Amino acid sequence: MKIRATALLFDNDGTLVSSLESVDRCWARWAEEYGITAEQFGKVELHGRPAAEIAADLLPAEIVPEAVARIEDLEVEDVPNGGVHLLPGTRALLDALPADRWAVVTSATRRLAEARLAAVGILPKTLIAADDITRGKPDPEPYLLGARALGVDPADCVVFEDAPAGLRSGRAAGMTTVALTTTHRAAELDADLVVEDLSALSVQVTDGGVEIARRD
């Protein structure tokens, strides 16, 4: 199977990098500080959603801004402690792409996303973060904004995601979707193509765009 596109849009956590160790540490501490039980926490969809939406599901509206600022501080401060690393295939795939053919579209804040990306040596020319949007994934706004920032028709973009919410966002934006089974089982991921991680893919840049194929 080959997919042709003009631009590639990547989620960050769970797609380019793994930050699960850091995320687990920080959100567990945050939940304890705000008196949120494990049962309450378990009922909320966490992965691939902005922190502001998660906090709004769990806390009274009047303390959500403070709580969001707190989790951002915890996660940024935790980056140097380890638990953030490149996922297989990330470096090789991004190195094969011109800087103006790809973007990172993340549910994290810009401050947090830049901290995690810098920790693993990735410096995207185009980054869409939670600060830039009014509606997070699964709404199509984040990926539509990514396409606009690159000057590309959404129909000519491919989204790479590990979370159901992100895949729904990409599909709603009218984009081709590639799912990675880094954080969810394949059965949970509805996409045009499902692979283990980016190492399963090859890319070839042509005058007309980018060609993506599954490695043999």
Rank of each mutant, 00 (worst) to 15 (best):
T109K: 08
D162N: 14
E32L: 12
D24P: 01
V210T: 02
D78H: 15
G136H: 10
A187L: 03
A92C: 02
A186N: 05
A69G: 13
G42Y: 07
A187D: 15
R185W: 00
E188P: 05
R185F: 00
R101P: 12
V76C: 13
A155T: 02
D95H: 07
A118I: 06
E45I: 10
E45H: 12
G209E: 04
L74V: 11
A173H: 04
L9K: 04
T15K: 03
A56R: 12
W27T: 14
V68T: 11
P138F: 01
E72N: 14
A115N: 10
L189S: 09
D78M: 09
Q40V: 06
E32Q: 10
T181Q: 02
V79K: 05
A7N: 01
E196A: 12
L59S: 08
A186V: 11
R91A: 03
S19A: 11
L167P: 09
L150T: 09
S18W: 10
D131A: 08
T206I: 13
A61N: 00
S18R: 03
A163C: 08
S18V: 09
C157N: 06
A163F: 05
L198P: 01
S19P: 08
E211K: 10
E77V: 10
P50G: 03
L20A: 12
A119M: 04
V68Q: 05
A38Y: 01
D207I: 07
P164G: 08
I122R: 11
I133A: 05
S107H: 00
D100Y: 00
V203M: 15
L198H: 03
A31W: 10
D156G: 08
C26N: 05
G35Y: 00
A165M: 03
P154K: 00
D24Y: 15
A113T: 13
K43M: 14
A147F: 13
P65R: 00
A61S: 07
E161M: 12
